[in-house]
Design a protein around this nucleic acid. Sequence first.
DNA 1: GGTAGTTTTTGAACATGTTCAAAAAGGTGC
DNA 2: GCACCTTTTTGAACATGTTCAAAAACTACC
Lengths: 225, 225
Amino acid sequence: MRKSELTKQSLFRTAVEMIAREGFEATTMRAVAAKAGVAPGAIYYYFESKESLIQEYYRQSHADHIKALEGFLETETSFEKRLHRVVTSKIEVALPYKNMARALFRIAGDPASRLSPFSDESRDLRLEAVKLFEEVVRGSDSKFHAELAPMLPKYLWLYMMGVILFWIYDKSESSKNTFSFIDKTVPLIASLNDTIMSPLAAPFRKKIISLLKSFEPDLGEKAGA
Amino acid sequence: MRKSELTKQSLFRTAVEMIAREGFEATTMRAVAAKAGVAPGAIYYYFESKESLIQEYYRQSHADHIKALEGFLETETSFEKRLHRVVTSKIEVALPYKNMARALFRIAGDPASRLSPFSDESRDLRLEAVKLFEEVVRGSDSKFHAELAPMLPKYLWLYMMGVILFWIYDKSESSKNTFSFIDKTVPLIASLNDTIMSPLAAPFRKKIISLLKSFEPDLGEKAGA
DNA sequence: GGTAGTTTTTGAACATGTTCAAAAAGGTGC
DNA sequence: GCACCTTTTTGAACATGTTCAAAAACTACC
């Protein structure tokens, strides 16, 4: 069991490194195997396909994200700051692996793919990511509309997916635009959330909440475990 | 020149039909060629790749969309109704070809792909689609904020792309959810547009407009032609 | 209607993702 | 150390997207 874990890690790291450098298409399975010093078939003993390497990256990237946040959510109480940090660190963690994120989103675009972040197969990981936003909401000192609160984490997760999409398309130096996008949209979300509680927003409130409710995405939370 | 056009059309139709029925991956180029009665290599005389068939579909789908709208924009003047019809008919036209749209969005997810609707290569077609929304705005009797007006068409186009994405993920019977999504979001957009003009919205207005402005997507309008 | 040039078609060959039967390596109980 | 079983690795073979040199079909001109 020891040796094989090494082979798997070696294959994964080689693949990620090559894909990050040369892109997903340009990296052939044969080349990865060769560089890792094994036969081509070996990769398929550990990974079910080339695309599934992407899913493994998705998993690892989430773990890195959690680690990057270590301690933070236990001390900070401002909703805005919590959200800002969570989303920012997500991008920071992914920064060196834009090609992986690109490939991931290409798969994400196809709901039929078992590897999409929206697929059944990705459910556990997706729910774990949503949990992060539940924590963002729960641990903050902001007030949330009673009907909004339960769906907010999901929509915040979707917002983060949107930010990642923005980033993928962002060609600015060091992804500056993405960080500036976060800097501007997070306060907007926070202030929209505050505003929706105010009497001024009454005419909109009902409409928007019913809209959010009726299209609340099914991220799999109902299904068992 | 005549005969070859026939071959091309035959190949394209066969491919679209097979992909619509069986999916993009499941449809092999050899099978398309066989069904169209030509050698495998022939497809590559007319289409540069399997994925480029998707782009050809994208082109044709736009033409169908225009045709479906024939006359409408010349008579209707309500902004809300104009927007509603344009977006609804886009989906209606695409309805039988969900698999094509799926494949298109998988490509769209990768900004590096020359075939993405956001790529340089797709610029002309994309600008033509944005023009449709310029027409939606121009021919309506609604008032638009002076700074908002010039970017509105682009954002409406992006909204439509979002609707298509929603549709791709929509598993409801006859895509009911998508149409209901349109029914709810179009009035929301229209009323948000009205509200932004009202004094009540003053505190938000500046922020939102500056946000929209600074992240106005570059859809290629500046580049030549 | 035959010659020369162009367009279209062919099909074998190639690269790459993937499979799988067989071989090798590793582990366990004696 | 050996027999037996499991895990891991190999590499040839296969399917599919794609290329390309050669053949075929077509066109224009005399």
